[in-house]
Computed example of a mutant assay.
Amino acid sequence: MSGAPSWAVSTAEDVTPDWLTGLVGLPVDSLDVAQVGTGQIGTCYRIRPTGDPGLPPSLLLKLPDPGSRELLAGAYRMELMFYDRIAPTLACRVPSVHGSRIEEDTGHFVLLLEDLAPLEQGDQVAGASPAQVRDAAVNLAGLHGPRWCDETLLELPGLTLNDEDSVALLEEMYPATMDLFLDGLGDLVDAATVETLRGCVSGTRDWLLSRPGRFGLVHGDYRLDNLMFTPGGGHGEVAALDWQTLSLALPARDLAYLVATSLEPEVRRSCEEAVVTAYHARLVELGVEDYDLATCWDDYRFAQLQAPLVASFGCAYGQRTERGMRMFAAMVRRAAAAIRDLGTLDLV
């Protein structure tokens, strides 16, 4: 790659024992490299190295998408900053980092992470069990609780709270974006879902600017495809991936997004109060004060507009695949039911 830093790689063929030795600082004799997953803004490889006894048996390597590397440089920079400066201060399970590099002007980056196997990636289309969602919510409290309303977060590059200027462009784009989104989904969603989603658009500006007194780190896309679970669907360990969309906002946005997009409506109705209670209890354990369960529940109801917002922009302007369209349809169908059930639009 002309002009690229010496450590930059873009394909599996570029990942050699010498290259990995330079990144991890341990001698590597040989390695096996295989692509995993279907990332939208990058590529992920599983590396199985041999050599120094201190080497892990397997690692995950994240690389940028060559076609949009410069455009997405800010997202890559945010993810590396999260692992370097923020993750050590939190109580949520995330993969450990074994090596990273970034050239901020060009977006060249590499991120070498702990391989979380035997944990298994969630499936957004299939959904999750109530036990999995509860465990994911408790892990989410480990993101929110330790830095709850921590104003020092505002000193970190790229982390700001919404203001009038920052939401103006989104407010302008949202109606056309929702039209594109719904046109693309076609008959994958029912009329009730379409009506609910269109009803979300007009109140989004006020929603984005409301409740500024409670803020924290928000993953922004805390859903099943970005979570790793203990196999089997029951109670167990959860770890969170993909931190490019980190922001500062009302923490309950992540909680509402997780619960509403992961569970079919009848299942959600039966367990969501227990999930919110478990999340709140973990916040209290982590030292969050002056935030009672009733307020947490109200924030959860209010925050349900996260799913339509994220899904519509993610689908309308992203690369469309058959699986992706089914995924977005499942997410917004479940979320629209939650918005109706919980009376969210009456709170905005």
Rank of each mutant, 00 (worst) to 15 (best):
S2K: 11
G3V: 05
G3W: 00
E13L: 12
D14A: 13
V15M: 01
V15Q: 00
T16E: 04
D18N: 12
G22K: 12
L23C: 08
L26A: 15
S30R: 15
A34E: 14
Q35P: 05
V36S: 05
Q40Y: 02
G42H: 03
C44F: 09
I47R: 13
G51R: 13
D52R: 03
P53Q: 12
L55N: 06
P57E: 15
L60H: 03
L63D: 10
P66Q: 14
S68G: 11
R69P: 00
E70V: 13
A75D: 00
Y76T: 05
L80R: 15
M81F: 03
F82P: 05
I86R: 06
P88A: 09
V94C: 12
V97H: 06
I102N: 00
E103V: 02
E104V: 15
D105Q: 15
D105Y: 01
G107T: 09
V110F: 14
L113I: 00
E114L: 06
L116I: 07
E120Y: 02
V125M: 11
A126F: 06
A126W: 08
P130T: 05
A131Q: 15
V133S: 02
D135L: 02
D135Y: 00
D135G: 05
V138E: 12
A141V: 02
A141S: 13
A141E: 02
G145P: 06
G145M: 02
G145C: 03
P146S: 12
T152G: 07
T152C: 08
G158W: 00
L159R: 07
D163Y: 05
D163G: 13
D165Y: 10
S166G: 14
L170V: 01
E172G: 07
P175D: 09
M178H: 11
L180F: 08
D183R: 13
G184I: 03
V189E: 11
A191D: 14
V201F: 03
G203V: 00
G203W: 01
R205A: 15
L208V: 04
L209W: 08
S210V: 03
R211V: 13
P212V: 01
G216W: 08
Y222L: 13
D225Q: 10
D225L: 07
D225R: 04
N226Y: 07
N226G: 12
L227Q: 10
M228K: 05
F229Y: 05
P231G: 10
G234I: 08
G236N: 11
E237M: 12
V238I: 14
A240E: 03
D242F: 00
Q244N: 10
Q244L: 06
A252Y: 08
A256V: 04
L258M: 10
V259W: 06
S262T: 05
E264A: 10
E266F: 03
V267D: 01
R269G: 05
C271Y: 07
E272H: 12
E272R: 09
H280N: 06
A281Y: 09
R282W: 06
R282C: 10
L283Q: 11
E285Y: 10
L286I: 07
V288S: 01
Y291F: 15
L293A: 14
L293I: 13
A294D: 15
F302I: 12
Q304Y: 08
V310T: 12
A311W: 01
A311R: 01
S312T: 14
C315N: 02
C315W: 10
Y317W: 14
Y317K: 02
Q319C: 02
Q319F: 01
F328I: 10
V332Q: 07
V332M: 07
A336D: 05
I339M: 04
D341E: 14
D341T: 08
L345G: 02
